Amino acid sequence: MNPVSTARFLQARGLQVKADERLLLDGVDLQLQPGQLLGVLGPNGAGKTTLLRALLGVLQPEQGTVTLQEQPLQRWSARERARRMAYLAQGQQVHWPLPVRDVVALGRLPHGDGHTPTGRQAVEHAMELADCHTLASRNVQTLSGGERARVLLARALATQAPVLLADEPLAALDPAHQLHIMALLQQLALKGMAVAVVLHDLTLASRFCTQVCVLQQGRMVAQGAPHAVLDDDLLQQVFNLQVLRMDQSGASCVVPWEVFA
């Protein structure tokens, strides 16, 4: 990964996104910096996926701006954006009977080097990181949902972009692989990537994320360190939850326990 400036690396200001006159995001401000693992939290329909798609430039806001390395997003070509921001969409399918290695190699398309030594090395490394290297020769359409999810994460990682935006990457994974992927994302952030991940699991978010932001009905309710943001008042107001708080081996987390009547 090439060194990048840390000054306001990916920033959204006053984002407003509409669909059929329905307000999906309303005045959202966000900063994502290298070294951060940002958990994007909120109930169903809060605007989490919309926020990631707006940060990518896939959705055009009615109001507000997105800047990448202090340049308006629209000044970057699609290829330049794809080299700098990798995206793992929610519930992706693979519609061709390709070997896993070839699917992961699609992550090198922005660089155009999937079949060069540099590209092949990036592909192999990404498969190892996502724990799918043993599947390299398998037909991707024969994989389980969890195996396919790891392959698609590897495809995003093969891009070697300094920013990774992942939308519910844990949804199809068993508990062991959920822990593996969250620890991997944490390590990538520690090595200088800027990572934003949409999560529904408050326990994993509070344990692994360096920052969390909470959306409710398209508005940003809070952003900050998990221990500061996920207090009892917010958890009741946004999620209608009472939680247990746990400390284990120096790590803290919240565990959803009861729904308020």
Rank of each mutant, 00 (worst) to 15 (best):
Q178P: 09
L199G: 11
H180W: 12
V221R: 14
T203N: 13
L184W: 12
L173C: 09
T203D: 12
L215E: 03
A156N: 06
V243H: 14
S249N: 15
M193D: 05
A154R: 02
V238I: 02
S249E: 15
V195D: 03
G250I: 15
L234A: 04
A183W: 11
M220E: 11
A205K: 05
V243D: 11
F239C: 00
C209E: 02
A171V: 04
S252W: 13
L188V: 11
A196C: 00
P226K: 03
V197K: 06
T210N: 09
A228I: 07
A183K: 12
S252E: 05
D174T: 10
A166W: 06
L199Y: 13
G250M: 09
E168M: 00
L199T: 14
A251L: 07
A205P: 07
L188M: 08
A154S: 03
L157D: 03
M220P: 05
Q217N: 14
Q248M: 09
L173M: 03
L152R: 08
C209D: 05
C253K: 14
D174M: 04
Q236M: 10
G224N: 05
S206A: 15
P162H: 01
V198K: 04
Q248N: 08
L190A: 15
V238P: 01
G192W: 09
A194W: 01
A222E: 05
L152K: 06
P169L: 01
S206Q: 08
F239R: 02
L152C: 08
M246N: 13
V195M: 01
Q236L: 12
V197Y: 10
M220N: 09
D247V: 15
Q236R: 15
H200Q: 09
A183N: 12
Q242T: 15
D174S: 07
L157R: 00
S252A: 15
D167A: 00
S206T: 13
Q236V: 14
Q186E: 08
V163R: 03
P169A: 07
T159W: 13
Q160I: 11
A222Y: 06
S206F: 13
F239L: 05
H177E: 02
A183L: 12
L170G: 10
D231S: 01
L153Q: 06
Q248W: 15
M182W: 11
Q248R: 12
D231H: 13
M220A: 12
Q216E: 14
L202Y: 14
V163C: 00
C253Y: 15
H227F: 00
Q237L: 06
Q187W: 07
G224P: 00
L173I: 11
L215W: 00
L179N: 04
A251V: 13
L184C: 08
Q248G: 03
M193P: 01
I181W: 08
L153V: 08
L199N: 09
L185F: 15
R155N: 07
D174Y: 12
R245H: 15
R207M: 07
V212N: 03
A158N: 00
G224E: 00
L188R: 13
L185I: 11
V238L: 07
T210W: 07
Q223S: 12
P226S: 06
L179R: 11
Q216G: 07
M246I: 15
L234M: 06
C209V: 06
A166P: 04
D232S: 14
